[in-house]
Design a protein around this nucleic acid. Sequence first.
DNA 1: TTGTAAGCGTTATCAT
DNA 2: ATGATAACGCTTACAA
Lengths: 335, 335
Amino acid sequence: MSSMKEVAKLAGVSIATVSRVINNTVPVNEDTLVKVKDAIRALNFKPNLLAKGLRIKSGRLIGLVVPEIVHHAFVSLINFIHKNAYEHDFDLILGSNLNNPDVEEYFINNLLRRNVDGIIFSRVSDESRVLRLLDKQNIPIVVIDRALEDERVSSVTVNNSTAGRLAADHLAALGHREIACITGPLNITLCRERLRAFRQRLLEAGIALDERLVCPEDFSFEAGIRAVNGFLSKGARFTGIWAQNDRMAAGVLKCLSQHDLKVPDDVSLIGMDDTDMAALLTPSLTTIKQPFEEMSRTAVDIVLRQIQDRAIPRTHIVLEPSLVIRESTAAKGKE
Amino acid sequence: MSSMKEVAKLAGVSIATVSRVINNTVPVNEDTLVKVKDAIRALNFKPNLLAKGLRIKSGRLIGLVVPEIVHHAFVSLINFIHKNAYEHDFDLILGSNLNNPDVEEYFINNLLRRNVDGIIFSRVSDESRVLRLLDKQNIPIVVIDRALEDERVSSVTVNNSTAGRLAADHLAALGHREIACITGPLNITLCRERLRAFRQRLLEAGIALDERLVCPEDFSFEAGIRAVNGFLSKGARFTGIWAQNDRMAAGVLKCLSQHDLKVPDDVSLIGMDDTDMAALLTPSLTTIKQPFEEMSRTAVDIVLRQIQDRAIPRTHIVLEPSLVIRESTAAKGKE
DNA sequence: TTGTAAGCGTTATCAT
DNA sequence: ATGATAACGCTTACAA
């Protein structure tokens, strides 16, 4: 790659002038402008981003940290964040923490060492350590999809209470009264929130959640199967299920069909996330849609705003999920 | 972040010595070593990667370009490549070309401007332009998942003829003789290869592919539905289908169930890719597995080897897909 | 309007 | 074994 030096030589000006032309920071003479632009074109010159970044202390780089890459929610985030970053002329450096706090710390450190302009986290694993690291740096950072107790960083989350309410309302409105809930791991705050809202809303509709039908699980396909087998082996009756993600819902679907239970005729099923899988399943899955695109856009917006003005106060945005009705739910008793 | 200068001052040595300690390039005295190491620890010093990269002309960065991020094959590649890169202490900078050659060129340029050490491409859209760009740079580059006609770059691909053969053999062995094939876009070489091998292998088994049952499509879920509706409306009979990706196969499954055709009782269905969706569907999908993990590992290996020694000749690795048998295929006539 | 030169944080050469 | 110092490619006072 050619450098400004070569451009300057070819155009017969100083490198400072070349820099001025490129960043059009101060006016330059018409003819020198032309000369420089010609030289730039001739050499196909593009400023080296490391040198620039080193000088101005900005890598035009956004770091994105997700707990795992192969996971629909994160894929969606990666996709939209990449797109948004691109539109603002930032490159994206991607890392998964491989579920290991050491890796996470290593990765964050690397980002800092690259003069990233901002960092977007999804679901930090080990909050304190990373925050401690970041706290001194005064670098814009947004946590997405999981609020931290810590108020020092901005966050973009979905309203998990709404999610629970939507699921409860839908099942209740369809006339279901024997209802099961397969949650994610209950040490994750958002899972507890979802369950709490779900339970309470059902209660408001006069439906008490049978505790045998509440099953904390690990978000996997197999978890859905396990949970249903558990319900059946306990002899607990149910006509409605909410699984806290689509993947577990797929497992539920599989297991119910193995037991010759029809969805939605015998059991109505709601998922969560609205991953693309939801529409592909048969029957297609009624689910609670997480607004991934909006989350991503919001996160990038916040980071970019804070990059432009570090003084901007931390913000905490809560977005609302929505109910997407497909084939897997129907009124109770419909044959 | 602290700099070498500060470390040097604290340790009472020159910054050159600090550099030596960090890269342990030449021996240093035991006690200065201790002093420097203490200072490094005290300041939590990590060398700035932009400065280093600028100086040694290597960003310890691998660029990955995929045509789209939300696509199981690429997610899988991103995941494994990230993991492999991490293990070799490289960061990953990710970009999709958004199906736009301009974006692609922009992105590649950015990578070069960041002194990336290597680039891994998946399915280049506009081959000549990008290659022209890259050709002068002498930077290690590997094309994955789609061989270029161009021999100048290394490639890691799967054997698409094998894929076609495996699908044909499996269906033929199960006794199917009326067989359909839903391909990807036929302007993509690998789709043609798959079809050619599929057709020929069937022929070798004495089965002629009915041309009304060959349907070029666009890899989408809807495509699978469209294709089956097309077959049925033409009154073409079939008991076996190969869809050239799992997503279209999911559409096929959906459409067949809408027509009350049972899989595998009435129709046997094979997909391709072995995305995680395959196991989640009901019935679970027999499919041709692409060895994404091995592809990723191989690609990273090649890039790293070429980084270490630019003189290493271009290599072209072809990996073999394999048949994964699940529930969606069965012997013909089985009721 | 343009050029000179310092500096960003490293590495590497050349002395000592 | 260690220290000055130039260089990597750029931006930005400061001068002219």
